[in-house]
Computed example of a mutant assay.
Amino acid sequence: MKRRDDVLLVDGYNMIGAWPMLARLKDENLEDARDKLLDMLADYQGYTGMEIVVVFDAHQVPGSGAMFKQHRVTVVYTKEKETADACIERLAVEKAKRSRNLFVATSDLVEQHVAFGKGALRISARELLTDVQQNRKSIEKALERPLSNHRNELDNALSLDVRMKLERMRRGEP
């Protein structure tokens, strides 16, 4: 069971390649696939409360890398000559000290073993997709429930003195 102070490190391109809907989208537009992944993980984060860090491999792209927030999900583009696997290993060591549970989502078998060695729990791309989809269904089910006929009135929670002052204000009395 995942808790609010847990951390999930995600190998972004690994998920894009392994999740069928993102793999198809990647063939048309890689940026759209990245955005869709981040949207899905943002919903997942909102539901679970976990800290999510998505790492994208930029080792073949010149530059110093980047880190920013998108929908409260931390997005990391690796530095030049740094692989996503190396970045995830580094983050796993840093985050393992500060979180209750550390999860690493990748289908790269070698990376799973390395993450396990760093104290992280492994999640395959398929397992994460299943969890994301199940959480999505739970959210949709909760939104479909009809609103209760009971009103949540503030008046019942206020003291008599406060209610009287508010009533006088409503009437325009001093």
Rank of each mutant, 00 (worst) to 15 (best):
V53H: 05
D27K: 08
V61W: 03
R170F: 01
T106R: 08
T48A: 07
K79L: 05
D155T: 14
D108M: 10
Y77M: 13
D108S: 09
L41C: 09
L9E: 02
S64F: 08
V55Y: 03
V53F: 02
E82D: 11
E153C: 07
L25G: 06
E144P: 00
V54E: 06
A157K: 13
G17F: 04
Y47W: 13
A142S: 12
V75S: 09
I139D: 07
G172H: 02
Y77A: 11
T106I: 04
R98D: 10
L143Q: 13
A23Q: 04
S148T: 11
Q112C: 05
P174A: 11
V132C: 11
M67W: 00
Q112K: 13
R4H: 14
R151Q: 08
G63F: 09
D39C: 00
D35Y: 03
N14R: 07
N101I: 00
V110H: 14
V75G: 07
A66Y: 03
V55H: 03
E51R: 15
L166Q: 07
K36P: 00
E153V: 09
Q112F: 11
V110A: 14
C87T: 15
F116H: 14
V54D: 04
R136N: 07
F68I: 00
V73M: 01
L38Y: 02
M164W: 15
S148H: 01
K165E: 13
R3M: 03
M164H: 14
E127N: 12
V7F: 12
V93G: 00
R4V: 13
G63T: 06
L30R: 12
N152D: 11
V162I: 13
S124G: 08
Q70R: 15
T78F: 01
L158T: 11
V55N: 09
R3E: 13
I16F: 09
V10K: 09
K141I: 10
Q70I: 05
G49K: 06
D43K: 13
L147H: 10
V61P: 00
I16M: 05
Q70M: 10
N152H: 08
M50T: 12
K79Y: 00
V55T: 08
G65Q: 11
R126V: 14
K36R: 14
M40L: 13
M1C: 00
L121T: 15
I88S: 03
Y47C: 00
M21A: 10
V104E: 01
A84T: 03
P62R: 14
V55F: 03
A115C: 06
K118N: 13
K118F: 14
Q134F: 10
I16N: 02
E82M: 14
L128S: 05
H113K: 12
V76S: 05
Q45N: 08
H59T: 01
E173W: 01
T106M: 05
R122P: 15
R90P: 00
V114Q: 07
A157N: 08
N29H: 09
A33E: 06
K95P: 00
D6T: 05
A42W: 06
K95L: 12
R24E: 15
K118M: 14
H59M: 06
L38H: 07
L109W: 07
G119M: 08
E111L: 15
I88W: 08
V93M: 09
N14M: 02
L160N: 12
G65W: 08
V110Y: 12
R151A: 05
T78V: 04
N29D: 15
K95H: 11
